[in-house]
Simulated scan of single mutants.
Amino acid sequence: MPRPVRIGVQLQPQHAPEYQLLRDAVLRAEDLGVDIVFTWDHFYPLTGDPDGAHFECWTMLGAWAEQTERVEIGALVSGGGYRNPDLLADMARTVDHISRGRLILGIGGGWFERDYTEYGYDFGTAGSRLRLLGEYLARIRARIGKLNPAPTRHIPVLIGGGGERKTLRLVAEYADIWHSFADLDALRHKSRVLAGHAGDVGRDAEHIERSVPWPGVAEAQAFVDAGVTLFTVGTGGPGYDLSVVAEAVRWRDDRFPQALAGLA
């Protein structure tokens, strides 16, 4: 059965001086008909005033799990080195239960040096962070298998990144969703690389959903033709403008009306 085309929004928890602004944005996004509401996992703003207002990822996800009714929720993406992986697995399992099975566990190698240095983590190198991510993914999988009660469902794992030798190898082994920032031609190439890695670990790469940032109405169908079924629009505080999100939802509903049935 073909995978449905979905629309996500990433509500970046920066420059919102009051949490209520984020809470309102989550409600508006769910009312618009998005499929997934993401946040990100950083400790400081990535744009604008570097010392501006900011909120933490996983405590928010617990609140969103209670606040929302239909949308999936998750981080796009958690920094792999920011938390003990066994603890992160337990956090994910708990949010899965609070949300009644709507959590996506997004994770990546991490890249924003200030997060590491200000909070006392070893920044290392890109290679060392990816090695750590591989170790942590194995521990997360193992810990989830030991938790009591077990998750309400298989918690989908989303891995972000595009490195062909290391990141895509981890995607092939552990991910249910691969989030790429590649342009269309690079995405096609990296999908072929991913298929090779998947074959090496005994998986069918078609079982891994492709996810990209929203490219706009003019280009979205070309990405669908290349295998993408999840598009995410990013927006930050304090206003959390959802006009582009609404455009993406309208495009989804016009092109893929079966999505409307899933929202009924």
Results as ranks from 00 to 15, higher is better:
A25P: 09
V77Q: 06
T229I: 12
A150S: 14
V217D: 00
P151T: 09
P4A: 11
F256R: 04
R83I: 12
A248D: 05
L168C: 07
I140C: 03
Q221W: 00
A92E: 01
Y44D: 09
G52M: 04
G160C: 13
S180M: 02
F256Y: 15
P238V: 14
G81V: 09
H97R: 06
G110S: 12
L61V: 08
G52P: 10
L103Y: 02
P156H: 06
V95W: 00
H197K: 08
V9F: 05
R188E: 12
A92R: 06
G106N: 05
H197C: 08
A261H: 05
P50E: 13
T235V: 13
A172S: 12
A92I: 09
R141H: 09
L103I: 04
E247V: 08
I144W: 03
P156G: 11
P238H: 03
T232E: 04
V212F: 01
G236A: 15
L170E: 02
P156L: 12
D241G: 06
D35M: 11
E209G: 14
D183C: 09
V71E: 07
G48R: 01
R210Q: 12
F112E: 10
H189I: 15
P215D: 08
E69S: 15
G120V: 08
G79K: 06
V95H: 04
R141Y: 01
D31Q: 15
R3W: 02
G227E: 00
P149V: 09
A175Y: 00
P156A: 13
V95G: 09
K166P: 00
D35V: 00
G48Y: 03
T47Q: 13
D254Q: 14
E173V: 06
E72W: 05
Q12N: 04
T47M: 07
Q10F: 01
